[in-house]
């Protein structure tokens, strides 16, 4: 499963889901489903999210098995 820190970093930057969505060109629902881990974004969207949240894609997304 793809895990992420989108919710944590979005809160840290003070963005709402709608705001982050409009900055990255997606809907609020998409941000919500990414945060819940129910939608895996494309590489392009992952790069955009990482850019706006000022981290690397590696710091933003990881596979659950990597935690072991």
């Amino acid at each position: 499963m793809l895990r992420n820190r989108v919710k944590e970093l979005r809160a840290r930057h003070g963005f709402s889901q709608t705001e982050l969505g409009s900055r990255t060109g997606v809907t609020r629902q998409t941000i919500g489903f990414i945060e819940k881990g129910e939608f895996s974004p494309s590489i392009t969207l992952s790069l955009r999210l990482a850019k706006h949240l000022q981290v690397s894609v590696d710091d933003l997304f990881w596979l659950e098995e990597d935690e072991i």
């Binding site: 997606v26 809907t27 998409t30 990414i34 939608f39 974004p41």
Partner: peptide
Amino acid sequence: EEDEMFRQ
């Protein structure tokens, strides 16, 4: 087809 999630 608003964005990539909705396209999917």
